[in-house]
Amino acid sequence: MNPITPIINGMKITLKHMFMKPVTLQYPTERPKVAKRFRGLHALNVSHDKAKCVACYLCPTVCPAKCITVEAAEDANHDKYASVYEIDMLRCIFCGYCVEACPVDAVKMTEEFELANYNRTDFIYSKERLLVKK
């Protein structure tokens, strides 16, 4: 083969791409389009102004990374609720098992993917931080 041919072929591709729309996003000025079923940061669904979670412990039980901490308590009406609900995002592997295990549709995963932080402790998401904001 002529030694020039590969170079010409290569240049062809290069030239072609010069006129195509670039793949790279100019993050953060440009934002990616996140799919509806993306598994990002968790959120706790709210109903009647209360977290739906009934503290059944199925999500911490199923969680393969053991990053969910739930502590149950009894409220004034003798109902069970989660007095503590924490997810350690440093350990979460975003498998979504917790969402699948939840019998009351209390936990979901959002499109939120920007989870960087300066402090390790900031990766522990408490119940307050996880509750769906209105």
Binding site: V54, A55, C56, L58, K80, P103, V104
Partner: peptide, 8 residues
């Protein structure tokens, strides 16, 4: 109501 029942 297994999710809230301690016997579960």
């Amino acid at each position: 109501d297994c999710p809230v029942c301690d016997k579960s």
